[in-house]
């Protein structure tokens, strides 16, 4: 293969520096934001010294607690619903005997990725308003959980399907040859092999729900403040280092889940 040959052949002038510029643009703002979360001064303009006091202030902030509880309730529920539906759907659409409507089902599952977020947001708002006015159905925070489940499904579906496509099905056949019932085969062979895909799906579904701002902002009713919504209310005020500390906490959680998903994904190879 080409990789053993001179690296010179792959070289294109200027591409390295351009790549470095791109990575600098991607990371510099985040690094500055995180650095100023550790600023001892209450001003966010001048660096005066290192301190972790803003993290303590943030963690003892009661509005932040309430928002964190709402976020956890919504994200965990949406992740459970989405991962269960996506796992079943991946099993029903990957490496099975083709069935009528399979392409349509596949397109439906991927549709939430194609619609701009703002359109998803206003249509969910309109839909729940209609449910409330005409049918007198108000699910409270359930509205947000269902709206989140919709866009979490394709994100959970992708890694599970990818895992199924790579899987070795001779083991399933071996289990069947040894007189395992279909349920036993699924429970003891297929599911354990599928687990890395499901774990990756859980991580991705959780991140997209945890980080969602646009859809939550439009659909959320009074008292349904999530962490991103709370951050937004603080961005509009004079900026404090406490806000940077909160952002740092949220970013760390996202990065933890992303790294988990990537690591699990790499392990399978």
């Amino acid at each position: 293969m080409a990789k053993d040959r001179s690296t010179d052949m792959r070289y294109q002038p200027g591409f390295g520096p351009l790549a470095m510029i791109c990575l600098a643009v991607l990371y510099a703002p985040i690094l500055v934001l995180v650095a100023f979360a550790f600023n001892a001064n209450a001003s966010v303009a001048q660096w005066t010294g290192f301190s972790t006091k803003w993290f303590a202030t943030a963690l003892f902030n009661e509005s932040f607690h309430a928002a964190a509880l709402n976020t956890m309730l919504i994200s965990v529920s949406a992740t459970i619903i989405a991962t269960m539906a996506a796992t079943a759907a991946a099993l029903g659409t990957t490496r099975v005997k083709a069935w009528r409507g399979q392409t349509a089902a596949f397109m439906t599952i991927n549709l939430p990725l194609m619609v701009p977020e703002i359109i998803t947001a206003v249509s969910a708002l309109s839909f729940f308003a209609l449910l409330g006015q005409v049918f007198n159905i108000n699910l409270g925070i359930g509205n947000l959980i269902l709206a989140h489940s919709v866009f979490c499904i394709p994100f959970a579906y992708m890694p599970i399907r990818a895992r199924l496509e790579d899987m070795d099905f001779t083991l399933d056949q071996a289990a069947a040859d040894l007189y395992a019932t279909p349920w036993m085969t699924f429970r003891r062979v297929t599911l354990p092999l599928l687990m890395p895909g499901i774990a990756s799906g859980i991580a991705l579904a959780f991140i997209v729900s945890f980080d969602d701002f646009t859809i939550t902002q439009l659909v959320a009713g009074p008292g349904q403040t999530t962490l991103p919504i709370y951050i937004w209310t603080q961005v509009r005020r004079p900026i404090t280092p406490e806000l940077n500390a909160m952002c740092t906490i949220l970013l760390s959680i996202s990065i933890l889940f992303i790294s988990l998903s990537v690591l699990i994904g790499q392990k399978r190879r």
Binding site: I81, M84, A85, A86, A88, A89, L91, G92, T93, V96, K97, W99, G101, Q102, A105, T108, I109, L111, P112, L146, S149, V150, I153, Y157
Partner: peptide, 12 residues
């Protein structure tokens, strides 16, 4: 296969 795919399709 159809039954397995149904919940996801229904939710969306």
């Amino acid at each position: 296969s159809r039954l397995l795919t149904l919940p996801a399709v229904l939710v969306i």
